[in-house]
Design a protein around this nucleic acid. Sequence first.
DNA 1: TCAAACCTTCACATTGATGTGACGGTCAAC
DNA 2: GTTGACCGTCACATCAATGTGAAGGTTTGA
Lengths: 128, 128
Amino acid sequence: MRIGELAERTGTSRRLLRYYEEQGLIVSARCANGYRDYDPRFVDRVIQIRGLLDAGLPTRIIKQILPCLDKPRSIHFPDATPEMLATLERERDRMTERITCLTRNRDAIAEYLDVVRGDAPSAADAAS
Amino acid sequence: MRIGELAERTGTSRRLLRYYEEQGLIVSARCANGYRDYDPRFVDRVIQIRGLLDAGLPTRIIKQILPCLDKPRSIHFPDATPEMLATLERERDRMTERITCLTRNRDAIAEYLDVVRGDAPSAADAAS
DNA sequence: TCAAACCTTCACATTGATGTGACGGTCAAC
DNA sequence: GTTGACCGTCACATCAATGTGAAGGTTTGA
C-alpha cells in the first residue's frame, strides 16, 4: 500500500505519515521507484498513534512504548533496560492520571447535559 | 493569594497562570497596586485545567466546558445555546474515545511490565 | 505525447503551550 | 534608603504537531 492509500484509510495526511516516519513511529519499505510501501497492519498502527497523540502523548514517548504493545512481542524480556522499565511505569501512571481526569470531567459534562436536557439526572447526582 | 503562591500550590509557572488568564480560563481580582489576587478555590481550578491540558484538550475547548463543570452551576439552563450543547456532546464523545484509547494502551503497558517482571500476568491476559 | 494523479525531498509557515529576559513598579526587612 | 523578593507588561524564542507549496520524477490512460 502506498502513502496515499494509508493516508486515506487512517484519516491522516501524507505529510503526517512522513513525519511519523521521521520520528521513528512507523517504517516503510521502498518500491523500486522510491515510493513508500506499507504493510496493511500499519493502518491500525497509525490509528493507534493518532489516538495516543490526541490523548496528549508526545511522539517521543509514543515511540518508546509502541514496541512494547505489539503482540507478538518485538521487544523481549532481556531487551528491556531498567531505564526503559522505569519510563514505562512512569508513563503508565501518567496515563492513569489522565484517564482519571478525563473520566471525571467527561462525567461532569455528561451530567450537565442530562440536567440541562431535563432528563432524570443519572446516579452521579446524589448531591445538590 | 498572589500569583506566586498560586503557582507554587499548583505546580505551574507564573507565566502560565497569566497565559491561562489571557485565554479566559481563570480570572483575577487586582489589588490596589495592580497585583493579581486569587481566591483559594483557584488552586483546584488550575489543577483541573492542567489535567485537561495534559490530556490533550486545547484551551479553547477547556474554556467552553469549564463553566459547565462548576457546582453550584454558574451556567444555568436557559444560557446554554444549542451550539454549546452540540459542542459539549462532541467533546464528551471525544473524551470517551481518548479514555478508551488511553485505557487500552495503559493496560497493554501494564501487562507488558507484568510479563517482563515475571509476575503472574493480570486478569487482562486471557488471550495468548 | 500529453495530462492527471500519484510519488519524492526540501523548506518555510503556523499554531498552541511554554520558556526567558528586559525593564520597571511595590513592598518588607535590615 | 537601599536591597531583595515580589509583582506588572511586553516581546521574542522554542518545541511539537501540522499545513503548504515548490521543483521534480513516475505511472496510467486518453
